[in-house]
């Protein structure tokens, strides 16, 4: 009973916070609404006994939204005083499309003949996940790790303006590097 109440409470929070993302008139509120929605879903995942994934969702998304808020302030120039944000375009199509999609998905969710549970619950879900990750699917996960590292590097390269030639000179021999502000390691 308690589980059901908590689940529905979290569901309401998750969806309303999700709606708030596109309704509120401030960037900070938008990104932290999304963070709240993620936290609610993370807690629901905890209710569904997937502790590791649930906690991970909370961890990653709060961090990401903290960065997101800063991004939005940098690019869009917002402060708490400037709460006028209407960045909607093409709302005419977006609303019916998304309502349609919702009806379709909801119909599927409610009327599809979902199978009853097959297999048994592992004793320790987290340990089972770890074994699964590092056992037969280790190669896949290692590949995911490499992809993520590559993304970080390429993301920085894409976004950065200064290259190593700007820092170290044309022959890459200038030491210390010509940075606008020196770093802490003294390269």
């Amino acid at each position: 009973m308690v589980t059901h109440l908590v689940f529905w409470g979290l569901a309401v929070v998750a969806v309303l916070a999700g709606v708030a993302v596109f309704v509120v008139n401030s960037m900070a509120r938008a990104s932290y609404s999304l963070a709240l929605s993620f936290i609610a879903v993370g807690l629901q995942v905890l209710l569904l006994q997937q502790l590791y994934v649930g906690v991970l969702v909370i961890l990653m998304m709060v961090m990401e939204m903290a960065i997101m808020a800063v991004y939005m302030n940098m690019f869009m120039g917002m402060n708490p005083a400037m709460m006028s944000m209407n960045m909607v375009h093409g709302a005419r199509h977006a609303l019916p499309v998304s309502v349609g999609v919702f009806l379709l998905l909801a119909a599927g969710a409610l009327f599809a003949p979902w199978p009853s549970r097959r297999g048994s619950l592992p004793e320790d879900v987290t340990a089972a996940l770890g074994t699964e990750l590092m056992g037969p699917k280790m190669l896949a996960m290692a590949a995911v790790g490499v992809v993520m590292a590559a993304t970080i590097v390429s993301g920085v390269v894409l976004a950065a303006h200064r290259t190593r030639y700007d820092r170290f000179g044309d022959d890459l021999r200038r030491r210390p590097a010509a940075d606008p502000q020196p770093g802490g390691v003294g390269r």
């Binding site: 932290y32 963070a35 906690v55 991970l56 909370i58 961890l59 709060v62 961090m63 939204m65 903290a66």
Partner: peptide, 8 residues
């Protein structure tokens, strides 16, 4: 996960 909340 909780210590990340400090960021927020």
């Amino acid at each position: 996960a909780l210590d990340v909340l400090a960021w927020a």
